[in-house]
Amino acid sequence: MPLDHAAEPSATAKPYVEALSAVCDHYGVDAESRYADLPNPASKVHYLTAGEGPPLLLLHGLGATATYWVPMLDALTDHFTVYVPDAPGRGLSTAVDYRETGFREFGVEYVADLLDSVGIEETAVMGNSLGGFQSLALTVDHPERVTRLCAIGAPAGLSRDIPLLFRLFDLPLVGRWLFDYFQAETVEEARAEFRRINVEDDSAIPDMFFEPGIVGEKLPGQRESLLSLMETLGTVRGMNPEFDLREAVREIQVPTRFVWGTEDYFWPPSVGRPVASAMANADFVTLADYGHVPWLEPGDEATDAAVAFLTDGRSV
């Protein structure tokens, strides 16, 4: 069975579980679907786990879920036991109101609580986009818990600048209208949106990959959680100052790699290179013609760069 669910899913969750299972099946991934009971407000966090070896935590981006990592798991599970949570308010994790929790502290707090829940004292971490921000912030706040750090795709936190579209989401009335307008209800709509923001070339992505996202937006509280998170992150002037990690990450000592596409929708490599250069133990891999979620592009360049680093040159 490609996805072993820890408990019989509810009628509401079942379509999502079935869609996620189909994605795992397509990519030949044998994963377990589990829940961690965490302190409120995170409450119940859903995560996937697969593989054998030392732990590796994978953190997804703003509007994503654990599904985004499934295409890379086959390359990781021979080397690691991977843990892939749905952030609170995404996928099957409990909905939260980020207007009340914030994200800078809470985004680290629930991850640390998750590691405690599954008995992990220290782990390698890889994050994409907002998950890249969490990875950096976790390492800043709890350096003793992170052994290696890989940000694949531009991480938030290294610039306060954001694309115009995301600034508009903060405008009264206009922001809510845009938020509802861009909700994908078909695979074709989801693919078009994905191609516009996440990848330069979507030809390697099967239609079924988009189904969990479409179904997941219908789960109770998920849309409101996402909107509250977007409102928390920034304003029409850009990202809120509390999310600026440029100075803090200079103190990171653990081995760090940035894997960054030249066509990243959010930030170009020129944003990240000076930050990496100022860090004690970081390198920077530039991927020509790759977008924001580079491991979903055709070819293995992004995955190979991440796996080679995370395994520290061990047999890949």
Rank of each mutant, 00 (worst) to 15 (best):
T232P: 03
L233M: 13
R250W: 01
S225H: 02
E231K: 10
T235L: 01
F258L: 04
F258C: 06
F258T: 12
E247K: 13
G261K: 14
V259Q: 15
P241W: 07
V259S: 14
E224M: 03
R250Y: 07
S225E: 02
E251C: 06
G238N: 09
E251P: 06
P241H: 13
A248Q: 14
T256W: 06
R223L: 11
M239A: 10
L227S: 08
E251H: 11
T256N: 05
R250Q: 07
L245V: 11
G221H: 03
I252M: 08
G221P: 02
E231T: 05
F243N: 02
W260P: 11
G234E: 05
E231V: 04
T256F: 05
G234D: 09
F258P: 12
R250V: 02
L229W: 07
G238R: 03
E224A: 08
E231F: 07
L227N: 13
L245A: 01
E251G: 14
D244T: 12
R257H: 06
T262M: 13
S228K: 05
N240Y: 06
E263K: 15
G261E: 14
S228Y: 01
P255G: 00
L226D: 11
M239W: 11
R257K: 13
R223P: 03
G261Q: 15
D244W: 04
E251Y: 13
G238D: 01
G234N: 10
R246C: 10
T262H: 13
L226C: 06
E263N: 15
R237G: 04
G221K: 04
E224W: 01
T235H: 03
I252A: 10
L245E: 10
E224T: 06
S225I: 02
S228V: 09
S228E: 07
E251N: 08
R223I: 10
V254C: 00
N240F: 08
S228M: 06
E242C: 10
R257Y: 01
I252Q: 01
V259A: 13
T262I: 11
Q253T: 05
V236I: 05
P255M: 00
V254P: 00
T235A: 00
V259C: 14
G238P: 04
W260I: 14
I252G: 02
Q253C: 01
S225V: 02
W260L: 15
S228F: 08
S225W: 02
T256D: 08
V259H: 15
G221M: 00
V254M: 03
S228C: 12
V254Q: 00
P241L: 11
E224I: 01
S225A: 04
G238M: 01
V259F: 09
L226W: 09
T256R: 15
D244A: 09
R237D: 02
I252C: 07
L233V: 08
N240R: 15
P255R: 01
L233H: 03
P241M: 10
F243S: 12
I252S: 04
T262G: 08
R237Q: 09
L233K: 05
F243Y: 15
V249H: 07
G261M: 10
W260T: 09
E242A: 12
I252V: 15
E242Y: 08
G238T: 00
G238S: 03
L226T: 09
F258A: 02
S228L: 03
F243L: 15
L245Y: 11
R246D: 10
S225P: 03
